[in-house]
Amino acid sequence: MSIDEALNRASTLLKEGGIEGARSEARILLGHVLGATREELLLCHANSLAKNKFEEFMSLTARRVAREPIAYLTGEREFWGLTFEVTRETLIPRPDSETLIEAALDFARENGLNRPRILDIGTGSGCLMISLLNEMPEAGGVATDISFAALEVARRNAARHGVAARAHFAAVSWGGALKSLFDLIIANPPYIAEDARASLMPDVVDYEPKEALFAGATGVDAYRALAPDLARLIAPEGRIFIELGQGCGQQVTELFTASGMRECANRSDLAGIERCAMFARAESPTAAMEKYG
């Protein structure tokens, strides 16, 4: 069987299975199996496909028809122009979260933060902190996660992108026992309400880690748990960049304000949805310095 014939068969199976962009996804899967780019597949489309490679390709196709995310099938996802390893232990990075990177970098540049201390809470694959470290070669960071398996993935991603020497990882819940102050805190906590579970695509609800998705009855439990640690760990003139679930901005502002923070700004994603909220200490920098030294 030729490469083109295999692609046609896989595309048909994916389309019949309700997968959008079936041909494109078939190319991605076959490219992964063969270690070939899209261009290389086009150039050798008439070549024969080895039996073992065809079987591997069909196995991945069947898993995709069962709605397993293509990022888990290939073990990779692109974020902020970088390729990150992902596993079933980590949330799949999404373009919406790049809004946090844009906001954090803008703040750092506008305020001359060349060597910021960064904290990434609930790091998962590490994509947020690693993207920032890649953009700021003198910055250092700490990333936390309750999942040891996720932290191992994040460590490998840090090494992959050459920032391992500046990235430190801690297996703690939220801010845990951390005591240092940070100039930039970034977080994408779970924010889906439990009653929204039935409305999610099977690609998400059946495969991605539940603890990275769901946050109680109203979707704000994680924000509530995070608030005290954020208020405690942010430097006097630092900023917190937190991802928002759709429509929960007001609740998050109220929770964070009650914990001693003030909202500075917010930023929408490419779909026009409020996605990133920025917070700082409510007290003045001078008062904070007197209090915290």
Rank of each mutant, 00 (worst) to 15 (best):
F57L: 06
F84W: 01
A198E: 15
K179M: 13
R38I: 02
S125Q: 00
K51N: 11
A22V: 04
R27Y: 10
H161Q: 02
W174A: 10
R275L: 09
D269W: 09
A271Y: 10
L132I: 05
A36M: 11
Y191S: 00
L29D: 00
L133T: 03
D269T: 03
G141V: 00
T257L: 04
T37C: 09
P209F: 10
E5N: 07
R197Y: 07
A193C: 07
R160E: 02
A288N: 07
N47I: 01
E25F: 08
A6H: 05
G17L: 11
D195A: 13
P209K: 11
G124Q: 01
V252R: 08
M136R: 05
R197I: 02
T90A: 06
I118H: 06
L13V: 05
E110G: 09
D4V: 05
I92V: 15
K15N: 12
D206M: 12
A46I: 10
L49D: 12
E89P: 01
L42G: 00
C248M: 06
Y191K: 05
L34W: 00
E76S: 09
I121V: 15
P189F: 12
R267Q: 06
A22I: 08
G219K: 12
T74E: 03
A26D: 02
K15E: 14
A227P: 08
